[in-house]
Design a protein around this nucleic acid. Structure first.
Length: 517
DNA sequence: TTACAGGTTGTAGGC
DNA sequence: AGCCTACAACCTGTA
């Protein structure tokens, strides 16, 4: 029997289907198979520091459990190591006589740093390292390179660059039964060691959790994808702007949490969508389902090529806006107590269930930033990062900049109404009633604007504004006009570069992307 | 240099 | 229901 092991390090990419780095771990070295040790590293110290709410911890815990099961089905298992990767790996490199380390490339800044350190440690321990790109349809570096060293800053430009690169590569095969030599050996850690953590170990208490509507893991991801693809007409006709932000059941796929953790391969989804559509007439990007995947790709590419992408200051694509610091408004927004039922119901759904419709995100994001409260998008980003099951670094930052008209989107005079927008798709306010039971008996004509109901009506509904439900914290009809003017001024100031941090000229961007490896 | 078209997903009001 | 306009007017990419 061969001496030594190979490690596949799971971080994102929590799946065995379309996992090229996992396949690379199974491949022979110099004609010999080595024992496979699939690993997930849990850093107990960082667990407490991360902005991860209870619902997402649960999702991750479920995803790891499912991954362990799927690895068992091919004769292996998941080993969950505890500690900092930079400390844990050097130890197991020796203990396990590791020959090869494989993992999926990750473009987030903290991950780049972490992976560079681990790679260095691996090399000095004589461990060869293989990285594979499979979290995105294209390698973001290649897209940037094809666009002459800078990330494309418009969606259409992005599409044309991707077009020049050809179609995305096909998914790779799911490993079936592993070769005998790859299976756990007698010297492998025991069955009851290095187990998937419990929720308790992750510091999650039962009473912090909302209902579990989306079970984490590859198995559910693939099932959900299949269910979505069953309805070919729906897939072909899908247009995002025409889906409802406030239906009682999700009007979109809710595959995002699975894509975030890589329980579902983006490439598998892409090719399955293409296959489902076939030759039928169909909607097109940017509004189609394929178009949604391309938005994800867009933000990944820009994020990979932009320093300080999750901040305003020092971010060359971000408009510098003098946002207010207003803890009271921020708290009201975060807790769903703005006094606008549409906004508050969305924030309640977010906290309880961990997923809200994309357009619902628009409504609350616009409200927090340029529309009403004039609070920095970075504050909203933090709240979403904690509460969303699908919280994804690049997409979260990118979309917050979009909604706050700080980047990518510039028509800041288009402001969502916290009253009118929701009415278009939910005239009677059923969604509001679901998430804000206090408004259950409010007549439909007042449910979006309970402050307009006569006191007798409020009393009869058991919901008196100021007592049972908050007064609205701002008057939208007044404040949005002032904010448009402020936004206009901010744009002017950015153009003349007065007073605020550096802006954008194209030459700066070129040098910036060159600093990235 | 300047002009113009287009930009996933605004609102209110009119026909 | 769906389409039109006014509102005030942004940006980027292209010619």
């Amino acid at each position: 029997m061969a001496e030594g092991t190979t490690i596949h390090w799971f971080r994102k990419g929590l799946r065995i289907h379309d996992n090229p780095a996992l396949l690379a771990a199974i491949e022979k070295i110099d004609g010999i198979h080595y024992e496979l040790r699939p690993v997930f590293v849990l850093d107990p110290w960082i667990v407490k520091k991360l902005r991860v709410g209870p619902n997402r911890w649960r999702f991750l815990q479920q995803a790891l459990t499912d991954l362990d099961n799927n690895l068992h089905s091919i004769g292996s298992r998941l080993y969950v190591l505890r500690g900092k990767p930079e400390e844990v790996f050097p130890r197991v490199f020796l203990e396990w006589r590791v020959r090869k380390l494989t993992f999926e490339s990750d473009t987030e800044p903290y991950a780049l740093e972490r992976d560079a350190s681990v790679e260095k440690l691996a090399r000095s321990a004589g461990v060869s390292v293989i990285q594979k790109v499979s979290h995105t349809l294209y390698n973001p570096e290649s897209v940037i390179h094809a666009n002459l060293g800078k990330p494309p800053l418009t969606y259409q430009k992005m599409l044309s660059v991707l077009d020049s690169l050809g179609p995305p590569v096909c998914p790779v095969a799911t490993p079936k039964d592993l070769p005998q030599a790859c299976l756990p050996s007698r010297g492998a850690p025991g069955d009851n060691t290095l187990m998937v953590p419990t929720l308790e170990e992750l510091g999650v208490e039962e009473d912090q959790l909302g209902p579990c509507l989306f079970l984490g893991g590859e198995t559910c991801a693939l099932q959900r994808m299949r269910d979505c693809l069953k309805n070919k007409t729906w897939v072909c006709k899908f247009e995002k702007p025409n889906t409802s932000p406030n239906s009682l059941e999700p009007s979109t796929t809710v595959l995002s949490p699975y894509l975030k953790f890589g329980c579902l391969s983006i490439r598998t989804l892409y090719h399955q969508l293409k296959q489902t559509i076939g030759n039928a007439s169909h909607s097109k990007p940017p509004v189609s389902l394929i178009g949604q995947l391309m938005w994800r790709e867009f933000y990944y590419v820009v994020a990979a090529g932009t320093p300080n992408f999750d901040k305003m200051v020092g971010n060359p694509v971000c408009c510098q806006v003098p946002w207010d610091t207003n803890p009271k408004y921020l708290e009201a927004w975060t807790k769903g107590q703005t006094g606008y039922p549409f906004i508050d119901s969305i924030m309640t759904q977010l906290r309880q269930e961990g997923w809200i419709h994309h357009l619902a995100r628009h409504a609350v994001a616009c409200f927090l930033t340029r529309g009403d409260l004039w609070i920095s998008w970075e504050e909203g980003q933090k709240v979403f990062e904690e509460l969303l099951l699908d919280a994804d670094w690049a997409l979260n930052a990118g979309n917050w900049m979009w909604l706050s008209a700080s980047a990518f989107f510039h028509q800041f005079f288009r402001v969502y109404s916290p009253v009118a927008f929701g009415k278009k798709t939910d005239k009677f306010g059923d969604y509001i009633k679901k998430y804000l039971p206090v408004l259950r008996k409010m007549p439909p004509e007042y449910i979006y604007e309970p402050w307009k109901a006569p006191l007798s009506v409020q009393q009869k509904a058991g919901c008196v504004v100021g007592t049972d439900y908050p007064r609205r914290i701002v008057l939208h009809e007044d404040v949005y006009k002032k904010n448009i003017a402020r936004m206009s001024q901010a744009y002017k100031d950015n153009k003349t570069d007065s007073g605020v941090a550096s802006k954008r000229p194209a030459d700066k961007m070129t040098s910036r992307t060159k600093t990235k490896k």
